[in-house]
Design a protein around this nucleic acid. Structure first.
Length: 581
RNA sequence: CGGGGCGUGGCGCAGUCUGGUAGCGCGCCUGCUUUGGGAGCAGGAUGUCGCAGGUUCAAAUCCUGCCGCCCCGACCA
């Protein structure tokens, strides 16, 4: 049994905020003695922190088991050959931590386990009779993130639950996907989150359908939009918007005019300098596709969506897209013959794609492809040719929902779960085949499903804290209750405290006993900081009057109970809180 | 990788500009007192000043290189 008497515990709380912590979850988890950083993005979990991690794991495990998934444990270190087979040894990039063993063989520390699980399954599953199957593990992953930050929210090493489903066909795979989708809802409801399941891009995992589970928090790294009318919700990377692609009205097209705009290279600079609204200015972004450059026109107040642009180019043009990204300064300068910040569509020799919002515009302002110069009264068709109009911009608050036209609202979110319908991407390249009823070889249809266990710990704190510290939901609090003994030297008081301690443990309540010979203020501050849901305070005065105090962490009021009523009351509070979720 | 900032006892920081005994608060140890919101008094321990090299009689401080960490950006299941 782990030490639950604080006099013997390892609970290094801090009075002051750590200097390097920006977000509240990072600050509080360090201050309250839950985590310690050992290297950038790599943390040790201390006793309280690890207990909460294990509680999160337990919820995840229960719901995965309930959904029929089977728990396994795959290796953290994986041979390069498997990644070469799937093609990701070259594709994955520097985020993959690569190792060499003493014989010079290449390995990586697993950032995900599609290759290993596919290899496992192809070796031992040969018949449709063995399908479907869903295997999962809860394990430490490593991704050498470009920029780890915000404590556990974007660490390099983290605990993740990853599950993989294998089915005989797409329809069956969709059923497996739906089962995971439903299990995820149960998990995040039990954890007490305010969250959204949103449609998402599949990124370099690949596949067709994908949903992210986003915990709503201002500090979240993702932006999501949801429709108030039809329930559509999506990551802005993916969010479809409805744009009325009206042609420009039949207005007079003024002659183009070249104007000096010294040092005004950003939209806000140009708008201020020319005394125009950003909406009257059109920005020209130069993107680098695999081999070629393309120009993208957007209204000055809009932001580009590189994912939509890449998808459009792939689906509607012959351009080899590759890893689409903003062109380097050197490439931009070469393409426009001008410094960065003055690009415009007039006279460009690369294809020009325009966002649908450009279509109604007439007599707009663009860069002149010349230093410190812009062009006024520019019009498409007359002054330059648009290769195609398309929806290329990032959705934002107030845009029309792509499904129903209702208004979209925007939130920040922390991605705590992601489900993908993979199809046969890995099973085909790695030859994970089975024999169907007709004796034919078929690739299995896969899905993969991740939950960021340690990221959840941070997300819970983001949503559950106050100025004094963490406020754990009962389900993942490291302990349910804390007995704060104000006068541990007083034998009468200690006798009652020890009695409570024993009775509560016997009743299955996880209880901390603060028997430290510390200042009273320190004990209260620590109890609040570490966020234990229930606090029972025992002092000499109260005990003499036959009373003890009960305080719920999430409520402001204290309640005085007679000595005999405390234990049953605490048991009752714990049980009702646990069963509610 | 680009821009900015930082690195001094376990934690938070001052000292660096203008070179000359390494400091403060918290924490820690001992003793006494204290006990309803981070207790008081007295005594005490703890530093390769990120690392390496250079300048100098003398370097935390000046110079060069490297390493690490944080923030913004690019990037990202």
């Amino acid at each position: 049994m782990s030490p639950m008497r604080l006099s013997q515990a390892f609970l290094p709380t801090r009075k002051e905020d750590p200097a390097d912590a920006e977000v509240v979850s990072h600050r509080l988890l360090v201050r309250a003695g839950y985590i310690r950083m050992i290297a950038r993005g790599i943390y040790t979990f201390l006793p309280l922190g690890w207990r909460s991690v294990r509680k999160i794991e337990a919820v995840v495990r229960e719901e995965m088991d309930r959904a029929g998934a089977l728990e396994i444990m795959m290796p953290a270190v994986q041979p390069a050959e498997l990644w070469e087979e799937s093609g990701r040894w070259d594709e994955y990039g520097p985020e993959l931590l690569r190792l060499t063993d003493r014989k010079g063989a290449d390995f990586c520390v697993g950032p995900t386990h599609e290759e290993v699980v596919t290899d496992l399954v192809r070796g031992d599953i040969k018949s449709y009779k063995q399908l479907p199957i869903n295997l999962y593990q809860i394990q430490t992953k490593f991704r050498d993130e470009v920029r780890p930050r915000f404590g556990l929210m974007r660490g390099r090493e983290f605990v993740m639950k990853d599950a993989y489903s294998f089915d005989v066909d797409i329809e069956s795979a969709e059923t497996s996907y739906q089962a995971m989708f439903d299990a995820y809802h149960r998990i995040f409801q039990r954890l007490g989150f305010e969250y959204r399941a949103v449609e998402a891009d599949t990124g370099n995992i690949g596949g067709s359908t994908s949903h992210e589970f986003q915990v709503l928090a201002d500090t979240g790294e993702d932006e999501i939009v949801s429709c108030s009318q039809c329930g559509y919700a999506a990551n802005v990377e993916k969010a479809e918007i409805r744009v009325d692609a009206t042609d420009r009205e039949d207005v007079e097209l003024h002659p183009t005019e070249k104007v000096p705009t010294p040092n005004a290279s950003s939209i806000s600079d140009v708008a201020a300098f020319l005394d125009k609204a950003p909406q009257e200015i059109v920005k020209t972004l130069i993107f680098q596709a695999e081999e070629t450059l393309v120009a993208v026109l957007l209204r000055g107040d809009h932001d580009a969506n590189p994912i939509k642009i890449a998808t459009y180019l792939r689906d509607h043009t012959d351009i080899e897209v590759g890893d689409l990204h903003l062109a380097t300064d050197a490439a931009i300068t070469k393409a426009t013959n001008a410094p960065v910040g003055f690009a415009g569509p007039v006279g460009l020799s690369i294809p020009v794609f325009a966002d649908l919002a450009i279509r109604p515009l007439a007599n707009f302002t663009v860069g002149a492809n010349e230093a410190d110069t812009h062009l006024l009264n520019v019009n498409y068709d007359r002054d330059f040719q648009v290769t195609a109009f398309a929806d290329l911009r990032l959705a934002r608050e107030g845009d029309a929902c792509g499904r129903c036209g209702g208004a979209l609202t925007s939130h920040r979110g922390i991605e705590v779960g992601h489900v993908f319908l993979l199809g046969d991407k890995y099973s085909r390249s790695m030859e994970a085949h089975f024999l169907d009823q007709n004796g034919r070889h078929q690739p299995m249809q896969m899905g993969c499903y991740g939950i960021g266990v340690t990221r959840i710990l941070a997300a819970v704190v983001e949503q559950n804290h106050d100025d004094d510290g963490i406020i754990w939901p009962m389900a993942i609090a490291p302990y349910h209750a804390i007995l704060t003994v104000l006068h541990p030297d007083n034998e009468d008081v200690m006798a009652i405290a020890n009695d409570y301690y024993q009775q509560l443990q016997d009743a299955g309540v996880e209880v901390l006993l603060d028997d430290r010979n510390a200042g009273i203020g320190a004990k209260f501050k620590d109890a609040d900081l570490i966020g234990i849901p229930l606090r029972v305070t025992l002092g000499a005065r109260g005990v003499k009057e036959g009373q003890a105090e009960l305080k719920l962490r999430h409520a402001p009021d204290k309640e005085f109970l007679s000595i005999d009523d405390v234990v049953p009351r605490v048991i009752d509070e714990v049980h009702s809180a646990l069963h509610k979720s």
